[in-house]
Design a protein around this nucleic acid. Structure first.
Lengths: 243, 243
DNA sequence: TGTATTTTATTTGTCGACAAGAAGTCAGCA
DNA sequence: TGCTGACTTCTTGTCGACAAATAAAATACA
């Protein structure tokens, strides 16, 4: 894809890299790359975002950079201090329960709607994501696991065909990627096969159009994940509060 | 502030009035004004948005205009065709049920959470909004009614203190302002006192911290509104499909 | 006269530059 | 030494201009 430099120090690297790019693609590229770097904690919460530095890094003007930042700010991924600085938004550990409340509810609602409204062509997509997730679990690849898990549930939500729930759920899954990243990297990246099985059950319920079963399975699945993360954070909150 | 209108004759509808404005305020001003004009159907769905025209109207460069438009696009209020045109987003009448699903659920969840988590200082705010809503009903002022109703429920959601639900609910209430506007302006702006009473019951349940009652009342209230609008649209869908 | 192609016109996307705001710096003074 | 205030610096916010992309208009051609 991209051969962008990971070196924070740059003086001459930029001049050699891609000057050719299509007209409207710069913003999208910067947006997606920055977004992934934030969600994968490559840019940890509190990291300063400098427009000119990004402009040099991507070999473009500040204007498209700025537009990407506005979009990221709209999703709450970065915080902008007027006239001053921009930084990656912090994770609000004190109010994590609000995140979990919303996450569990959206797990339930989207899975329920998927059972209700999915079409035949949705299932292959969902199963493909599930296969990728299973492969990531097999390989014990935490980053891939987190990303594919989010993609799977996002696909299920798409099958439910409610743009409002899809939108909120995607935002929660994004925020969840940051939290899960902390969870798994601290836990040594071992991940239970159990999640794969739970996903299988949910997909089966969706395919059978068993709405109540889908709801129940999604609820249990979500609460199970939340419980694990909560106990992890309650064990470590005194240590991690500095984040 | 300063009102120096020196040029009475301009070529367009809104003449320039303020050359002086604070540094970061232009974007916010344009954003909020355009947002209100869209939600009040002053700019009906499909209206073209021209950047240079807006720039002239507000007496500023295209850059801050553009930033405001990016934010509006992020909320789905305008649609941007790459390299071509920008227009006020259409109301998707074919999928209104997804809107109603989300709206009812958010009514319930936010009211329930308000009963659970509200603090003493929240109630005066809520009651103030309810008083304004009652006054608007009394005066049969449809626009004010719609706006104060949205503000009231937004305040209830704030008392629930879940930023994710607050965010989605506010988006739904915004979209709802456009739909309600169609409803009431077609219905001759007569509005039932019943909504005032239902609000009173909901507020009482919140104050009593009766979670189940708050949930039930919110559900009935929401479904009642949805039912009215649905029957209205189903009666008129053949006529209004052109919108 | 109808269709394909070139030309024009309009709107957006991007650029480089400048000015305003705010934090840090440092001299001057009690 | 400690404090105040001007200065410096660094980042952001805004501007005017230009180039690319596309739709509309005009022209050429069968």
């Amino acid at each position: 894809m991209d051969e962008s430099n990971k070196d924070p120090v740059m003086d001459d690297v930029v001049s050699t890299s891609v000057p050719e790019r299509k007209r409207g693609s710069g913003v999208k590229m910067v947006y997606e790359l920055l977004r992934d770097e934030i969600l994968d904690l490559v840019l940890p919460p509190g990291s300063p975002i400098d427009e000119v530095q990004l402009a040099e890094r991507f070999g473009m003007s500040r204007t498209p950079i700025r537009e990407a930042l506005v979009r990221l700010a709209g999703e709450g991924l970065i915080d902008t201090l007027p006239n001053r600085s921009t930084m990656v938004s912090n994770i609000d550990f004190l109010n994590l329960h609000t995140f979990f409340d919303a996450l569990v509810l959206m797990y339930r609602v989207t899975t329920r709607l998927a059972a209700q409204y999915h079409r035949a062509e949705d299932l292959p997509v969902i199963r493909a994501h599930q296969a990728r997730f299973a492969a990531a679990v097999e390989a014990q690849d935490a980053l891939a696991m987190i990303a594919t898990n989010a993609a799977l549930h996002s696909a299920i939500a798409e099958a439910g065909r409610n743009p409002y729930f899809i939108s909120l759920f995607n935002r929660l899954l994004s925020e969840g990627r940051r939290i899960l990243r902390l969870y798994y990297q601290s836990y040594g990246d071992r991940l239970p096969q159990q999640f794969v099985d739970e996903h299988e059950d949910m997909i089966a319920a969706i395919e059978a159009r068993d709405i109540e079963a889908a709801d129940r399975l999604a609820k249990e699945h979500a609460e199970q994940i939340v419980r694990q993360i909560q106990t992890f954070f309650s064990r470590n909150e005194r240590l991690d509060m500095k984040l």
